[in-house]
Design a binder for these strands. Structure first.
Lengths: 189, 189
DNA sequence: CGTTTGCTTGAATTCTGTCAAAGCAGGTGG
DNA sequence: CCACCTGCTTTGACAGAATTCAAGCAAACG
């Protein structure tokens, strides 16, 4: 098993060596080249992944326009969760922005693990709880902060973000126009 | 057991008559008068509730200013979940806006039920999943919609909302000023 | 090279916030 | 019963910030 995923899973639940072995039986590793899709609109999302290398963006289209709602970087879980949970068709695309590699587990195997190793149920709960906290924070920042403040915050908390992601994507992610972001950057330089 | 809570819980998991009996042993009913607090800042939130009657608002203070983030109406679960889950002190207040009554279960009892009746774990997961979906939708509406559109949407989806909640609270909930909301209302009348 | 893509810049417009003031209840006390 | 106070809503004037539309520019790519 990948060392990172081991560490991350251990963040949530402690596994014995034996449990880890059972777990790793079900893991599938895949490679993506820049531009490849991990998920497309109308796909079913039957996997949860863990980004070993590279990164992805998470967006959907309205009238042909990309609306970016997130990015998945290395050492983060990757999936369209609502879609994974409800077994719906995805509205979102997940696309590699660099050459990337991801370790997956299939929903069926995960559900099976729930029965064999109840601990994994806890893992699952914690992941959703984390997602909930994360969206809540982002939601909050829309209330309390201007686009400019949100941009500056992003700069401070994830400078690597800014370097690797094109500006028009950051703008979309922040909910502003590329022109608007350009002016914000000008003001703060 | 209250009929509504029975129906709602059955929405998530099916309980036998026996399981319902076990469940109802742990339920505690409380009454609130308008203005009473169900939760205050720095309280621990050890209960999940279900609103039988009346309704509540959910807000926190920044420099003495109320920032309303939600309302709990009858037949909805009520709690500060992040706080309940993480056993943190609450940043939020929950206050009755009308005379209300709520049925509670204590965290310890709920955890105990998880062991006795694993179904309840599923109930718990579903509740968090629902919360996650809900915030995600509200988050989304900030991207795609203007304050005016958000207000009109709220009007359409929950007209009773508008009638019972003072405008300055709706404004806070929508993330705009009371003056702004007043003008929106004028434009659309 | 010429084209495409992404970033910048300008001008006009629109929407919201802020500040200040006035109107309009509903409730209290004299 | 009336006058007053208080809290909520409305209105006006103004400033600020973002959007939109349009154009220019630079780097990347075929």
């Amino acid at each position: 098993m990948n060392n990172n995923i081991k560490a991350i899973v251990n963040n949530f639940v402690n596994l014995t060596e034996e449990e880890r072995l059972v777990f790793s039986q079900f893991l599938i590793k895949k490679q993506y080249k820049k531009g490849d899709y991990l998920l497309k609109e109308n796909d079913y999302c039957n996997y949860v992944g863990f980004v070993d290398k590279g990164f992805f963006n998470f967006y959907y289209l309205i009238d042909g326009v990309e609306h970016i709602r997130g990015f998945f970087f290395s050492n983060e879980f990757i999936s369209n969760y609502p879609c994974f949970l409800l077994e719906n068709k995805s509205k979102f695309y997940i696309q590699a922005l660099e050459d990337s590699s991801v370790t997956f587990i299939h929903r069926d195997d995960l559900l099976m693990l729930y029965e064999k190793l109840p601990k994994f149920q806890v893992l699952s709960i914690k992941i959703v709880e984390n997602l909930y906290m994360e969206v809540s924070e982002k939601y909050e920042s829309f209330f309390l902060k201007s686009p400019e403040e949100r941009y500056l915050e992003l700069m401070n908390t994830s400078p690597n973000f800014i370097q690797r992601v094109p500006q028009y994507m950051i703008a979309s992610y922040l909910g502003i126009t590329p022109e608007g972001l350009s002016r914000i950057r000008k003001r703060n330089s």
